[in-house]
Design a protein around this nucleic acid. Structure first.
Lengths: 239, 239
DNA sequence: GATCCTTAGTTAGAGGCTATCACGAACGTT
DNA sequence: AACGTTCGTGATAGCCTCTAACTAAGGATC
């Protein structure tokens, strides 16, 4: 979305064309899915013929990765602005859902089926890290009150957070112990293993509900996905 | 996978060719993704030219939906055989993960990005219902021991299961109350709202971890997804 | 066994797509 | 005014899906 500051009228025109191409691309993706995206069709829509667009995008894949980057950027921005005031995880989760429902295919472009060998370019993983940092902040700011964590009945380990394990205490579960030794992905962020665990769980659980909802796996069922999402969020905030 | 019992040698040959086509299709999907599936390429691989395969599959989409159905069938079968003895949810979850990792694109064909307007045919939704029934059985058989559910500190509602709400008691959370009025999707299954909720949560949480892992979103991070999956499963079994 | 019908496979072809190339036209700069 | 850069064109090659007409082979029937 954010192009370089246009100077000459030529650059101005160029960026304007690129933006229009992307716009039409998003329309195509929203209505027919990413695989149906066609540079050719976009060119015809814009009144020019076929190969003209190759002056603006090196290839179809090039356009795709740029769209993916824009999607990440958009997500990071909405995430950032939702966490502005007090880093409330609840409003972030709500913003995430709004953003996803606003354009399901955009969400799925990021979190849906990838092409098997795909490896995201560096600038994209940077934005992903930016998103993760925001999530970590929000999880670190979370009041890790005791709440559940009664005496563990079996070998089952509750998510840490009980009275015996304050937020900055030692890892309370084996996975958090594992995280203590594998936290390079959160390097630069002063988060305890419990916070890392919390962030991962927030991510996977919200994505789990959202993904199935967007893919239409709840359509036959009559319950309201929003309530399931809210229940999961509630459970995440309760512990 | 399960073709009709072949009688005449002609039918025999026909089903054999169809099976080989599907096999090659799965190879293509596994290596290049579903959008790259090409009837033409498969035909050439099999030594015949172009349109020959249209005698066996009405269209590319026809082949695709049949592959999707087979994927569902395969998942339902592994699920069923994993729940045979005592319907242990843990072994089912493990079987699910094994099945998914065995062919990520097959999993993603079911649970990944769909084409926007897609509506699954009836025989597919039937298999999906079959899978859900197995999951519901397993969740109903779960020992819903008290465990967490201490005094709810805020307005947050724990997943029901505390001493005050036995498995067959009244709904303990607002979402479960909602489910009580929207349980047509589990019609024919004598499950309490708490069990329905549990089934949905098992589904979404395991899918959340699995989906992100298969899509490669954990690759940059050094932790072991298997342990996160195990931790989530543990948490599901603990309550 | 000869006939006939069904099925399997062929080539040809329309129309879509990505992508490259060579050419002409417009533009801004010098 | 002349020049080099940039933009758009048509032509072309090579994929793809899918239809149509034709041929060859298989099985059933008389």
């Amino acid at each position: 979305m954010a192009e370089a500051p246009t100077r000459t009228p030529r650059e101005r025109y160029r960026t304007q064309v690129r933006a229009e191409v992307k716009e039409r691309a998003w329309e195509q993706i929203a209505t027919a899915g990413a695989p149906a995206l066609s540079l050719n069709a976009i060119a015809k829509q814009m009144g020019m013929s076929g190969p003209a667009l190759y002056r603006y995008f090196a290839s179809r894949d090039d356009l795709m990765t740029e769209l993916i980057k824009d999607a990440y950027r958009s997500l990071a921005d909405t995430f950032a602005s939702a966490s502005k005031p007090g880093a409330d995880l609840a409003v972030m989760a709500h913003a995430l859902r709004e953003w996803a429902l606003d354009d399901p295919q955009r969400y799925l472009l990021i979190y849906g089926t990838p092409v098997p060998g795909y490896h995201a370019p560096d600038d994209v993983t940077e934005i992903a890290a930016e998103i993760m940092a925001i999530l970590l902040d929000a999880c670190a700011a979370l009041p890790l009150t005791p709440s559940p964590g009664g005496p563990a009945t079996t070998s089952h380990e509750p998510l840490s957070g009980g009275p015996a394990t304050p937020p900055d205490g030692p890892p309370a579960t084996s996975f958090e112990a594992h995280l203590e030794g594998h936290r390079e992905w959160a390097a630069g962020h002063p988060a305890t293993p419990a916070v890392l665990h919390r962030a991962l769980v927030v991510w996977t659980r919200l994505h789990g509900v959202l993904s199935l909802e967007l893919a239409g796996h709840f359509t036959g069922m009559e319950f309201d996905p929003a309530l399931l999402y809210a229940a999961e969020l509630d459970d995440l905030l309760a512990r």
